[in-house]
Simulated assay, not measured.
Amino acid sequence: MRVQIRVQDDIILAAHVADAPVLFERIVTLRPGESIRLSVNGVHGTWVKISMHDRGGTRHGLAPVGAMAETWKSLRSSADSSVDLEILPPINHHTDDYLRLVETSMPEWNSQEDEEAYGGLRPL
């Protein structure tokens, strides 16, 4: 399901996607620190759930991670502040025998540093 939103902040608040019930519910039900993959104008990237507590209660949102943070920052500074969002399925490395074998020999692939450096890569 694809939804269009305005880029209003450094993060995506659940309130920004209230018109998209599937995405709204997904944001609200994620645990803080849990990640989700989103396509933003066709660029695939990782986002992490954040919760902010203030006098009005708890606000739920997503913060971009790694390369997606730079992509989001550039979109936020552009004149056209609307983007298309789509929830992506999680990457299942265990369905590919080769990746499963390689993963066991390269634990650094599962590091935060790796995600920051290569998380925004996508096929040409």
Rank of each mutant, 00 (worst) to 15 (best):
T29K: 13
L121C: 08
G45R: 02
E25C: 04
P21F: 13
H44R: 10
N41Q: 02
K49Y: 04
V48D: 01
D9P: 09
E108K: 07
N41T: 03
L62E: 02
A117N: 12
H94S: 11
A117L: 14
D84I: 13
P90A: 14
E103N: 15
L121Y: 14
I11Y: 07
R6E: 13
L85N: 06
V7N: 03
L121S: 10
N41A: 05
G45Y: 00
S77H: 15
S82V: 12
V3Y: 13
K49A: 09
H44V: 06
H16I: 02
T95M: 09
E113L: 03
T104F: 09
E86H: 11
V65F: 05
G119A: 08
R55L: 11
D97E: 08
V40A: 01
E113K: 02
Q4G: 09
I11T: 12
K49W: 02
H93T: 07
K73P: 00
V3W: 13
I5S: 04
P21D: 08
L23H: 01
G66F: 00
Q4N: 11
E86F: 09
H44G: 08
L88F: 11
V28D: 04
M52P: 00
E115I: 09
G33N: 12
M68E: 00
E70Q: 07
H94N: 11
S81V: 11
G56R: 14
E103W: 08
D84P: 01
G45L: 02
V22H: 11
Y118V: 05
H16C: 06
I50T: 11
T71E: 12
A18Y: 11
W47D: 00
L124M: 12
V102N: 00
